[in-house]
Design a protein around this nucleic acid. Sequence first.
DNA 1: CCCTGATTCGC
DNA 2: GCGAATCAGG
Length: 189
Amino acid sequence: MSWTDERVELLRKLWLEGLSASQIAAELADGLTRNAVIGKVHRLGLSGRTKGAATAEDEEPVQEPEIAQETQHSTQKIEACAAPVMPMVVGNTVLAVAIEDAPVEAQAPVPEPLPKMDVVVPLSERVTILELRESTCRWPIGDPTQPDFRFCGAHKAPGTGPYCTYHSRIAYQPQQDRRRIAKMQQKSA
DNA sequence: CCCTGATTCGC
DNA sequence: GCGAATCAGG
């Protein structure tokens, strides 16, 4: 795809909002890289982005109160979690299956040493969509419409696509693994 | 090592 | 015009 007016407009907006090039690249999707974004930003003459640079002389010495900043953050996170999640579900059969499974896996409160087979990702290790990195597992955990929706977040192993070793294994053998998980749950129940 | 934007240059 | 590769830096 190329730089349509729409995409350029979105790029301009997000850039001026202060999103990083890689964040914008992810937002525009389509395999766009941050390099592409940065290149475009330069060609558009948008580089050198600074807060209120236009009226640079009288800078804003007053910092936003911390509380206000936190509120802002929360709002951003909620929006970010709600919106971009759906395409992942629609565009990928594996993900759709995963989301069906995720709530079941997530509710298993396994406190003891996990068998490697278990798909329980500790709450503290899970990440929001904003915390996803190129190198982290994108396996969804929970209900995408809920605020506590998270991704696995584990470090990706080489050759596992968007997922970590364990999740990619399941992703590539969904039928087999779902049966196996069902058995394990029967046993433990 | 993670990340950031800036720059170059072949396409 | 585009963006991968590279650079310089936090």
